[in-house]
């Protein structure tokens, strides 16, 4: 499979998370563990700091978690100006308890059936995977929605 994000690679992070984005493009939420000692390693890295192993294993994980923190952006910042028309928008950091407490970012969407839930730390959320788009700089992405809203839908 040709992955779209690979043609627009953002350099700047650690750079060991290609499998995370490949997973999202396939529609899967994958997070890594150390292939030797099974420690969750997030963000992904090249060597396990716990046991010294060099291999990672990528696990398909259920995209469920709790809002760890969030911010609502009220300004069209330079390097994310693709989202100017969405201002104000909410970005969230979501803790995944069944993946060693890994914290994964995404957009937060509390709207559903005319209701609009504000983001709150601790709210249970479900991740919905979106295909690459201009707003996500050609990367696949996750939007986190409150579990309660999901049930209403």
């Amino acid at each position: 499979m040709d992955y779209k994000f690979e043609q627009v690679k953002i350099v700047g992070g650690i750079g060991a998370d290609d499998e995370f984005w490949r997973g999202l493009e396939r529609g899967e939420f994958c997070l890594p563990t150390c292939a030797s000692c099974n420690t969750w390693m997030w963000p992904a890295h090249f060597r396990c700091g716990s046991c010294g192993a060099w291999e990672m294993r990528w696990n398909v994980v259920e995209p469920k978690g709790k809002i760890f923190t969030w911010t609502r952006s009220w300004y069209a910042f330079d390097r994310v100006s693709e989202r100017a028309e969405d201002v104000p928008y909410v970005s969230a950091v979501v803790e995944i308890p069944h993946a060693g407490g890994a914290r994964v970012m995404g957009m937060f969407d509390g709207t559903m059936d005319g209701l609009n839930e504000d983001p709150r730390i601790g709210t249970d959320v479900v991740g919905h995977i979106l295909p690459p788009s201009e707003k996500t700089k050609g990367y696949p992405s996750i939007v986190w929605r409150p579990v309660a809203s999901g049930l209403r839908a």
Partner: peptide, 15 residues
């Protein structure tokens, strides 16, 4: 700035 931020509308230290 890592992709995790930029993909999700976050780029500035303010955010």
């Amino acid at each position: 700035t890592a992709a995790q931020y930029l993909v999700n509308g976050l780029e500035s230290p303010a955010q």
